[in-house]
Amino acid sequence: MIVEIVISFFLVVSGLFGLVGSFGLIKLRDTMQRLHAPTKATTVGVGGVLVASMLYLALVEESFSFHEVMITLFLFLTAPITAHFMAQTHIRMRVDRNELPPTQRDFGWSLFDEPPEMDPAPTKDTAKDTAQGN
């Protein structure tokens, strides 16, 4: 009975989190605001479903497996990466570069400016060229 209550609690809470995440996607005003809702609330919702699934299979069906942990780890690792890429895409497509704050460095935003020249590390080819030159 307690097991059923705990599993149902996880399922209901995760469903509410998923609904909040998807509702934020249509409710919030700006793209940068909209980026917050799905990448955080929906990820927690899927995590809740996976915890409920793990508890159900372990306690009711009595067959524990690590697949849920793998899916949870994968989702929690990839959600920030996709959010970062989508923010980069938005800045590149929609934001005027003059509106961005200065970077307080010698070079500007890496999305718009080329990366600064690094000191070239001595490679085999350049070493051979200098040897031939001498």
């Binding site: 399922l11 995440g21 909209r34 899927v46 479903v49 699934s53 299979l57 009711v60 497509m93």
Partner: peptide
């Protein structure tokens, strides 16, 4: 309005579909 919004919507759809598949797995046991 923008491509970033559409990519975001598609990514969220993928996450919701993952949740639906796992839920179906619980339902079937």
């Amino acid at each position: 309005p923008g491509r970033a919004d559409r990519i975001l919507a598609l990514d969220t759809m993928v996450i919701n579909v993952i949740a639906l598949i796992v839920l179906y797995g619980i339902w079937q046991g």
